[in-house]
Design a protein around this nucleic acid. Structure first.
Lengths: 338, 338
DNA sequence: CCAGGTTTGGCAATGGATTGCCAGCTCCGT
DNA sequence: ACGGAGCTGGCAATCCATTGCCAAACCTGG
């Protein structure tokens, strides 16, 4: 088993070429500062020795770490895969590394991470934050921060407009004749779930349709079964689920109970995660620009380097309804109705 | 917009308590070294000030970064989600952070990352390596390294025994009467695809069944359509796909072409990714212990701290066949046969 | 041929924490 | 009361790269 070899340092390069370390540093970082001839020799020597600057040491003086952190509440949730992917892509494009932290849906872990991380990263993208506005504002004072799917006055954020999307979905159901629908809510701490429910409630009243709220449920497939039972219990003809995970879980439960989707019940998901198009039946869902969200968030994070007013504090990305096969006309008679 | 505040340093704590920085450092890291009374005061002051040691500075002297890197060829692939999850969980459990790098299926990116990263992490878990044995061995000399799904003599690795699993799958098909099957290969650089094919080939010969190899194909859903067409072209009654992504993509194509699975054709996937259980039809597949693999790899990485022979250089984790609905008895007459 | 300006490269401080070594103090036995 | 052991805590070097400041060397024009 090979032993961990000593890394090549800037001093090694300097010694090889016969110059000072400062000269090597400048040759590598400030191209115009050193004469071409010497610079070439230094670059060549660095390449030969396999020199790579130590990011830790560099960040100590420069303050830059060339890395950002992405905090998500639950890596398990495929929804965040898209976000991770988008963020990673943009971070790489801008020459940054990417630390991934799973906060396990816990406000404490979130707070602790936010406290420990600032020294190691140039900025943090925080998805679906669980903390309070005040805590988040405080954190933003310590490190550049961009929120995803959460708005706090004065802080930068990228949110997907699922509230508007939910209204589209409601319209869709109403146009199919549904008059009694349910909103299956996500975690109580979810800002977007609350926002969506408020929008739905208001619009449902205006349209004169019944809209009940069920939940909260954790956003997992496993919770889908309970959610499905609750939906059945409420005797609605359509249900909007907090997310696809829950909806897909529910779909399976409906199948077990012999409830046909969409003949007996229409189901709408949210997020359009991997699998939403090939589950059974393919899920009508709110398609969200997840990857784009990740990219935009990272861009926003790295753009205004902590100084001056950000051009736009918050950015809202549109969502749209993707109609597949889990929604259909309202059943004329509802099976099992008394 | 709040300005980035100066971080609290060990010097601040020292000044507050009225001791030297070395004393603070020891109070925090070597509990027995400082008198209890003083230690308590230091800890209290650190908490009050909100002191968190700067990981960069710490790693400079100690050599430890308390973070590891996970390199995967493609974050897009749900297979790696499980790996990421398992690795993340174990890293967290062992008090380490987690840098995620997508090498984009590129050997160059992989090599570059392997060259740059050693200074910033305590070790690297490299999944589905694309580099040569020699390059990997060289890299392992620079940084603790654990390979996933790749074996190189002398290096530590965790592999999922998909070769054995593929034989189980073959047995399954044979027992259903299939005599002519295809192996839909993954990328040419995939070590596990090669290994699996070799095992299949040998066993197929022994069992007296026809086994052709199709491909290579990139491991994506999009490639599934082409793979499906190739399978049809080869007039086999059963197909083992390199992975579920490819298989699910193919499933969709089969449906489009009116080929019924499993009535006309049996399909076996590999990995048992998210979605394999709710696609249509639910996929018979090789269930791999992905999360466990991630955990074991991280454990292995952090266990033998670079010194001495590792107890076990390589660990092989078993896989098993999960039979769902995409495999069935061989068709008595094959539709469309001349 | 010299004053003044421009390159070019080096010295040394810097960032934050760790750690080897040393010094002062207490406490013990004799 | 004295010598040595055992605790505690501080000094200063160290890790590696960056950068402000300075000085030597070179160039230019008068």
């Amino acid at each position: 088993m090979p032993q961990r070899r000593e890394a090549v340092t800037i001093a090694d390069v300097a010694r090889t070429v016969g110059v000072a370390t400062s000269t090597v540093s400048r040759a590598l970082n400030q191209p115009g500062r050193i004469s071409d001839e010497l610079r070439d020799r230094i670059v060549a020597a660095a390449a030969t020795l396999g020199y790579h600057p130590n990011p830790q040491a560099r960040s100590l003086t420069s303050g830059r770490t060339q890395s950002i952190a992405l905090l998500v509440p639950d890596i398990t949730n495929p929804f965040f895969f898209g976000l991770i992917r988008g963020a990673q892509a943009q971070a790489r494009a801008r020459g940054h590394r990417h630390v991934l932290v799973d906060t396990e849906e816990s406000a404490e872990v979130e707070a602790l991470t936010l406290a420990e991380l600032p020294a190691s990263v140039d900025g943090i993208v925080l998805a679906a934050a669980r903390l309070t506005d005040a805590e988040l504002t405080a954190a933003a004072g310590r490190v550049p921060l961009v929120l995803v799917n959460r708005e706090v006055p004065g802080l930068r954020s990228v949110v997907m407009d699922t509230a508007a999307g939910a209204l589209q979905a409601l319209d869709h159901l109403v146009s199919l004749g549904h008059r009694s629908v349910a909103y299956v809510a996500g975690p109580a701490t979810s800002w977007s779930s609350r926002k969506r429910w408020r929008a739905l409630q208001r619009t449902a009243r205006r349209l004169g349709v019944d809209c009940v709220r069920i939940g909260p449920f954790p956003p997992t497939m496993a919770a889908g079964a309970a959610a499905a039972d609750a939906v059945v219990h409420h005797r609605v003809t359509g249900a909007l689920f907090f997310n696809d995970l829950l909806a897909i879980g529910a779909l399976r439960r409906f199948a077990e109970r012999g409830i046909r989707v969409p003949d007996d019940l229409s189901v709408v998901g949210c997020d359009d995660i991997f699998g939403a198009d090939f589950c059974r039946p393919p899920l009508t869902t709110l398609t969200t620009p997840v990857e784009q969200t990740g990219r935009v968030a990272v861009d926003m994070l790295l753009s205004t380097p902590t100084v001056g007013e950000p051009v736009r504090a918050g950015q809202t990305l549109p969502t749209h309804l993707t109609i597949r096969e889990s929604t259909g006309p309202v059943p004329t008679r509802r099976a099992g109705r008394p």
